[in-house]
Nucleic acid binder design. Structure first.
Lengths: 203, 203, 203, 203
DNA sequence: CATGAATGAGAGTTCATTCAT
DNA sequence: TATGAATGAACTCTCATTCAT
């Protein structure tokens, strides 16, 4: 999925080792997604990965470490998906719409990610906070640029960035994770949200 | 704090029993807030409450049960705080501002609540989902009424409600839970968010 | 059921007390029969009896004590049933047949008794052993008398008595407790066993 | 002792594992024999076996599971001992005598087995019933064959089989488990019982 | 690098018994 | 005599981590 997990994991020296580490990471994504961090067990991860229990510690220092590696891996994947959906010629509002739509699609296809990143709040508060602060800053930057370009209001700042991020996250929760029969599709949700964002709700 | 915890707990038959149950609930709020659900322990809760370990099971069937009772208790408390901040003479937008401001103050004063309700996602997904769906519906209702009254756009629905809820939750996260030196105060955050809500971000 | 439980239980001073004690004993018979000694709980017994938990200790010193009282109570009941089935004019072999038949009927109607007396082996080995030794002696006595009367062989002793008791107990197990569709009735089983007893199995 | 415990236990993958599992089984036989199922504790079993508490769960799923494994193991052992005592050239009555004598000796040497199998009635009623039904069927078969061979009465069936089994079990209880100073030896008990079996007690 | 057995601290939970009312 | 809350020792079971092979 993502690529750089070096901070939280040990670096394999052989190709075979690299494959084993990847198998563990993939198995962990499923296990954590299915059962949550605390109910997940190392032995179940290694079972899913088809490797011996002891091998786990060849590649990760602890249960926390593989979780952290996974959060990094997935944060990266979300970021990449968002980047791919956006291009420089779009207007600021269009960018926000495209970003939300891509996020909704991504979350719908990888529901376990949502769960994992969200649980990070309790497992590894540092990385959880870092995750949202990074995103918040990126949004704030986009809003500022939009202001400079004259297409958005000029005084937008951190408050608006967090508000926008919260909107997106909760729309993901409602329409991607808890989706129901008859819900509007991702593009429709994104369109409505974008309209709220553009002109507010006042009559 | 709140009052009705009957579904998740056993009903004491004497006044003394009622006091003991209350002590356990209060101790649990602190324990869960401090260490999170999984790191919290029953024995630590009873120690904080000053009762014997076994007494816990006189009032709650399990660790899950007291957590559930607590979520109910606190959901109720948040609801009451919001209700008290609002009155019928307010305009729809003013209501939203007041609600957000009251939420920010409440969350700032009871940070542990945020943590507990949020962790419910992993401990008791049912009640977590129920919590947000209930709030989402209430907001949708307010938006609809505002539309009928002619002060808000007429076609607002569930998408806008969830977007608004997400805004509020994340502003609470950033400015009540993760507040920093130099941050704008609750009323200022509420004012800015309300402005975004009213007229959007377009120039 | 039986009557004298004085050795294992406290003596109530009032009529009301006597009724409460009886309720506890009856409830205990059901509880022990249903769940066995170790899975039975005092609180379940008091619940069945409709009295408060604490009242239990007004009438019995411990869980063991009520069990012992119950074994006495039931031993007595079995003895009485056997005595009623027999009369002095019967021949020794007829007596054995009548005793077995009455035991099979009794056990079929009070399956829980079998379970309770049998579990006594593990709960209160003393009384278990005493139970069977008493019965063994009584049988030995009957065999001896039959020998003196010239109707049975003259040299019958303890070995034959225990053999006969084992026969009876296992026929009770098989045809009263584990009875199946199509099994011979109590009188038929008693008839066959009596024939074995009378003339053996040799051709 | 016996050999096949596969249904109730996990299969070790190494020789070392096999040894540890055996140590646990042996320790459990002593512990259950000494204190009975409910008073036995896993920690005491592992202490006796000289392994860590947690290792228990590498080989058995629960306290019930090791008990079940043990009952299988011992049922098997009793069966083997009986088989070894018998040979095809014996007459039907001689076979019964030899079987009883071998059982008395076996029970005298492994008193804990009697206790364990008997307690199975309460711990694992299924296997208890299966144990006696299997033996009952085997005896019924032998009686039938003896009838065909013309040495026993022709109409012997299940009732006689259970009667015979009960005789043997109770003689084991009295003369192997509860043996006393001055009791007749195993061969003498078997001789007397065989005589009762052969020709009954009628004068 | 891989394997799987071994470890043991620590958790939740039960329940016989006591005690204050 | 009756009540039910309070007690705490004791239990089974889990699982992250270590280690010998």
């Amino acid at each position: 999925m993502g690529s750089d997990t070096s901070e939280a994991s040990k670096v394999p020296r052989t190709e075979r080792g690299r494959r084993t580490q990847r198998k563990l990471l993939d198995a962990a994504a499923i296990e954590f997604g299915d059962r949550g961090f605390h109910d997940a067990s190392i032995s179940s991860i290694t079972r899913r990965a088809g490797v011996a229990l002891g091998s786990f510690y060849t590649y990760f220092d602890s249960k926390d470490a593989i979780f952290r590696a996974l959060v990094l891996d997935m944060s990266e994947a979300v970021k990449v998906a968002a980047r791919d959906a956006i291009d420089d010629t779009m207007s600021p509002l269009t960018i926000e719409r495209a970003a939300l739509e891509s996020f909704l699609r991504f979350a719908g296809e990888h529901k376990e990610i949502y769960r994992i990143i969200d649980e990070a709040e309790f497992v590894d508060p540092e990385s959880y906070r870092a995750h949202y602060e990074t995103i918040g800053e990126r949004i704030a930057l986009r809003l500022e640029e939009g202001g400079k370009a004259g297409e958005l209001r000029a005084n937008l700042g951190e408050v608006e960035a967090w508000a926008l991020m919260g909107m997106n996250v909760f729309l993901g929760l409602r329409y991607a994770i808890w989706s129901r029969e008859g819900d509007p599709a991702a593009d429709e949700v994104a369109r409505i949200a974008n309209s709220l964002l553009a002109k507010g709700i006042r009559a």
